[in-house]
């Protein structure tokens, strides 16, 4: 197993675990950036440099800026960690965790058994563009509908309304 693959993949998992276990939201955002950058490395190793660039630009750039904005506007308030700790007694999660570990082991065994087809050639942005605006042009329309719906939703929810009695 080459070093680069192990490094990127393990950094992805470590970052994700650190995200969901931090107590302060800004620290979690930092680890989330680490996760996205490592995932961009994984995409590069899979032969998808265009997806890696988009991952860095949109996820690690735009979406993280959104999170930082909201954390700035809300400020630190974390009073619920005691209740979360009280939920995490071993009696509550031990049985499902053991079963899920067994299933993951079986999945790993099954994935090992499937043959690989050699190293993939990279899929260039030209291929993606030809596919996107050729046979998959409906995806562009769907994405535009989705972004418009998100824009309207964010505007409708976030606008200032006087409190109704």
């Amino acid at each position: 197993m080459p070093v680069m693959i192990l490094f990127a993949a393990s950094l992805t998992v470590i970052g994700a675990v650190m995200v969901i276990t931090r107590r302060i939201a800004v620290h979690a955002v930092l680890w989330l950036v680490v996760t996205f950058l490592a995932l961009a490395c994984v995409f590069t190793l899979l032969g998808a440099p265009f997806a890696a660039a988009l991952e860095v630009i949109i996820y690690a750039g735009a979406i993280m800026v959104l999170f930082i904005f909201v954390i700035m506007m809300i400020g630190p308030a974390q009073p619920e960690s005691d209740r979360e700790k009280e939920w995490l007694r071993p009696r509550a999660w031990l049985g499902p965790a053991i079963l899920a570990t067994l299933l993951c082991g079986e999945l790993l065994f099954g994935l090992r058994a499937t043959p690989h087809t050699g190293t993939p050639a990279p899929i260039t942005p030209r291929d993606v563009g030809l596919s996107l605006f050729g046979p998959c042009v409906m995806m562009v329309e769907l994405a535009s509908f989705l972004l418009l719906a998100g824009l309207v939703t964010a505007f409708h929810i976030g606008r200032h309304r006087p409190e109704t009695p």
Partner: peptide, 12 residues
Amino acid sequence: MTALPPGDALLL
């Protein structure tokens, strides 16, 4: 550059 096998990517 060594490539990541798709099966391992599924595991990840």
